[in-house]
């Protein structure tokens, strides 16, 4: 089949993958340590692990997902690639921003029982994230 040649294309040791793999595990363990093993304030913990999360995403895209590979092969392939990236961004934004919005608007706020009520409860429209 056509992928016969593709199989034999990559030679040499897959350093890129190995480094990516190790780094992604290190980042995860680090995040775990920051959250459980330090006594930083909640805000700082959040900032740090969010930072790690972005690093992690970038790492995955660079090391495994061929994001820099610009296809000169065919028009279709690169259009598919761009469409894919745009859709991925769309879904990621919907998941994150959508969840924050839905979970913090209206009465759903009361869901976090043991937190003191935030003022300004009626403001469920344009929410700035907190």
């Amino acid at each position: 089949m056509a992928n016969k040649t593709a199989v034999n294309e990559h030679h040499g040791f897959p350093w890129k993958h190995l480094i990516g793999f190790v780094l992604s595990i290190v980042l995860t363990l680090f995040a775990l340590w920051v959250a459980l093993g330090t006594d930083l304030s909640l805000t700082w913990i959040l900032i740090i692990i969010f930072g790690f999360a972005f690093l992690q995403a970038a790492l995955q895209l660079l090391m495994f997902m061929h994001v820099t590979e610009n296809s000169t092969k065919s028009n279709l392939t690169s259009r598919v690639q761009i469409g894919n990236i745009l859709f991925a961004a769309f879904v990621a934004i919907v998941i994150v921003i959508g969840s924050v919005w839905v979970m913090t608007a209206g009465h759903a706020k009361h869901d976090k029982h043991d937190e003191p009520k935030t003022e300004n409860q009626e403001n469920h429209g344009e929410h700035e994230s907190h």
Partner: peptide
């Protein structure tokens, strides 16, 4: 396909995310 990611809250309207949501 695009829309299908934009409607999930209709399964829990009664959760009380408010009129806007």
């Amino acid at each position: 396909a695009g829309y299908s990611f934009l409607v999930w809250v209709h399964h829990f309207f009664t959760m009380g995310s408010g009129a806007v949501v």
